[in-house]
Amino acid sequence: MLPAGAWWSCGRICLNPVLEVRNLKKVYRGGEGPAVDNVSFSMARGEMIGVIGPSGAGKSTLLRCINRLVTPTAGHIFIEGEEMTGAPAVRVRGLRRRVGMVFQHHNLVARLTVMQNVMHGRLGYMSTLDGILGRYQEADKKQAVEILTQTGLGSFLYHRAGELSGGQRQRVGIVRALMQQPSILLCDEPIASLDPASAQVVMDLIRDVCHRSAIACIVNLHQVDAALRYSDRIIGMYRGGIVFDGPAAELKESVIEKIYNKPIKQLMIGDGIKGGIRDEIREGMHSGIREEPHDGIRDGIKEGLRDGQNG
């Protein structure tokens, strides 16, 4: 893993950024308050940003604004210097090709083969008729086979996407995004529905892609430990706004508490982060008190019952 805060990390000001977001705001019709409010940041080639924050903080909306799946209410988005906001539909199509997206539920066409799904990434570069007839370039197909083989899917080329395991499907989703030859890769909860082993394979793959091909990656994550382990830079969101933007090393417990608006003890995040809690347990064992693992839950229920009776 590359050290956090390496040379390409550029923070809020950045020369020649691959993506620049300026004062972005999105208000959904009928939503309570803005989903994304006055968000600004920029990123360099090959940078990996982990976005953390509670559900509803605006992480997904932020990503969807970047490739215009959601139309922003106000603000500007520049992709390699070209403005995405306000661009006409024809140009949005061209800009979208440069932004790959990986989804929580991989969103493959279950009936089609791995190759067919992966080749969908090329549709943006083809004429409509060629797309309909599936007349893909031989060179593109060769590249698809190559990347699939590299990601360990070489023997699944003609399997239906629906027959694969969750981790394999997610890898197919990533390869599809790579076939776009993107300069930015947006990953929306890519490991939220994967088991720990598949999650690691997928995160390793995203990081490799990001650093080796110099593709800027934004990864929305619920797993704070994964975000810390893989990201060069962390953006913490709370109620639509950025409350933290900096290298992973600077993400202190107090900042995490601010992002999730909860004391750290009530957050189920990796033990490595909750150093304080681990120390407490160790102390308890030294003094001869055996910590029952379920005590915390029981105390919670007792507390809840007490609260209920009082209220």
Binding site: R93, R96, F103, H106, H120, R122, L123, A177
Partner: peptide, 13 residues
Amino acid sequence: IEAVRTGGASRVQ
């Protein structure tokens, strides 16, 4: 649909 659309595919594609 969204996933294919993000690749820059047209409506017909």
